[in-house]
């Protein structure tokens, strides 16, 4: 007589409750003892991390605690929207997402990394008890589940590691490239364009865009090496003032840079006609 899954499940659980009642140990104090020891260890680890973080950070001329120890500085410099001399970096448990973005860097695919994969993971996790309906619980008798788990852990680990070690150039290093850009693009001596190039290096544009082989190629931002071939400086000024008006919801407005700086950026972009075009 074949019995259905629900019936077998309920039988298992009834047997479980029976066993716990007859041969179990009291939660208080037996299990609570283990819990308490573990909790004390956890609090100890948290306090230790806090102390290492605090005492290992050093001082710099700009302020106390800005020199990172092994657990990083107390804080970095005050937020400054204007000078992105700075690599955007989320907390470590978002590194996998951060790295996915670099894999799916073409505009049409960004969506896969930012929303698609996390949503699928969440649905797979929530749905787990509903598509894995076998009664078997012993790991060695659940080969598919175990292989899936190992693959998940491995890919998360690799993505997190890659995200942690991914290198982005800092604005201060990029600025050193401005002369070589001027040479390649042929705007040497055009002061306005050179000033724009500096701003371009410092304002974090290369956290998303690429330019002559530099930059991140993130979030679907196009390569700008030849962007000057398509539009003029006035257009770029308008574009940077309000990217959303051009259907670009990813890039924020750069109007805070001020008209003068925007004009320089526009000049630089217009002068970037690519190495082949001349």
């Amino acid at each position: 007589m074949a019995r259905d899954l629900g019936e077998l499940n309920r039988e298992d659980f009834a047997r479980y409750k029976d066993d716990v009642k007859k041969e179990g140990k009291p939660f208080f104090p037996r299990a609570i003892f283990h819990d308490t020891v573990m909790s004390l260890v956890v609090v100890g680890i948290i306090v230790a991390l806090a102390a290492i973080w605090y005492y290992d950070a050093g001082d710099t001329p700009e302020g106390e605690g800005l020199e990172p120890g092994i657990l990083g500085p107390w804080y970095t410099e005050p937020a400054d929207p204007a000078t992105t001399n700075f690599v955007p970096r989320p907390d470590w448990y978002f590194y996998f997402l951060f790295y996915l973005l670099r894999i799916f860097k073409w505009p049409e695919t960004v969506f896969i990394a930012t929303v698609g994969i996390p949503t699928i993971c969440l649905i797979l996790l929530i749905g787990l008890p509903f598509y894995d309906r076998r009664r078997e619980r012993r790991p060695l008798h659940r080969p598919v589940a175990m292989v899936a788990a190992v693959l998940t852990i491995l890919s998360m680990a690799v993505l997190t590691w890659k995200g942690a070690t991914a290198k982005e150039a800092l604005g201060s290093e990029l600025v050193l490239l401005v002369p070589s850009w001027a040479e390649e693009q042929g705007f040497v001596g055009n002061e306005e364009a050179e000033k724009g190039a500096k701003l371009f290096a410092e304002s974090g544009c290369l956290n998303c865009h690429t330019y002559l082989g530099q930059g991140a190629g993130n979030l679907g931002a196009p390569d700008l090496s030849e962007v000057g071939a398509t539009n003029d400086a006035a257009y770029f000024v308008q574009y940077l003032t309000n990217p959303a008006a051009y259907g670009n919801t990813v890039m924020g407005s750069y109007s805070y840079l001020g008209a003068e700086n925007l004009a320089a950026l526009g000049e630089f972009l217009a002068a970037s006609k690519g190495t082949s075009g001349g």
């Binding site: 804080y75 970095t76 005050p78 937020a79 992105t84 978002f94 973005l101 929303v115 890039m251």
Partner: peptide, 22 residues
Amino acid sequence: LPWDQTAYWATVVGINLNGTAP
């Protein structure tokens, strides 16, 4: 919340990520 450079720029990117969702 600390409103330092790390915080600010990571969040700028984070908010922009939200912006790419349909």
